[in-house]
Computed example of a mutant assay.
Amino acid sequence: MNVKEEIKAQIMGALEGANFPIETPEELLAAFPKGAETTCKAGNIEMTAGEAGKLLKAGDFPFKSAEEVADTIISRAGL
């Protein structure tokens, strides 16, 4: 599994119990187990949910699935 796939899997795993759709950035952060402090690590990449949230735009919401959240964050982070 490469870094991109590992980060995606970690984001999706962290959001496994979330209720979708998620309408706001605040709802998204609250859906992570440790909120903004939830951390994904792979290779030399480390990113908190708070840092990842800064990559999102108002137009990205609502999110319909954990995979959609993960794909958007990975795309914006340039992974």
Rank of each mutant, 00 (worst) to 15 (best):
D71N: 07
D71G: 07
E67S: 13
E68Y: 12
E51C: 03
A70V: 07
D60I: 06
G50T: 05
G50L: 07
A70Q: 11
C40V: 15
A52K: 10
D71A: 07
K57T: 12
A52E: 00
G59I: 15
T48A: 00
F63E: 10
S75N: 15
R76C: 05
F63A: 02
C40T: 12
E67N: 10
G50M: 07
L56Q: 00
S75Y: 12
C40I: 15
S75A: 14
G43C: 03
A58V: 05
E51R: 13
T48H: 03
E46W: 09
A49E: 09
A58L: 03
A49V: 00
P62L: 13
A58F: 03
A49F: 02
T72M: 09
D71R: 07
D60M: 06
E68S: 06
L56V: 02
C40D: 12
P62A: 05
D71W: 05
A70S: 04
E67L: 06
G43S: 04
G59W: 11
T48M: 00
K54T: 09
G59Q: 15
T72G: 03
T72D: 00
S65N: 09
F63S: 00
I45F: 05
G43L: 02
D71F: 07
F61C: 08
N44Q: 11
I74N: 06
C40M: 15
S75P: 08
D71L: 04
S75V: 08
G43Q: 03
K41M: 09
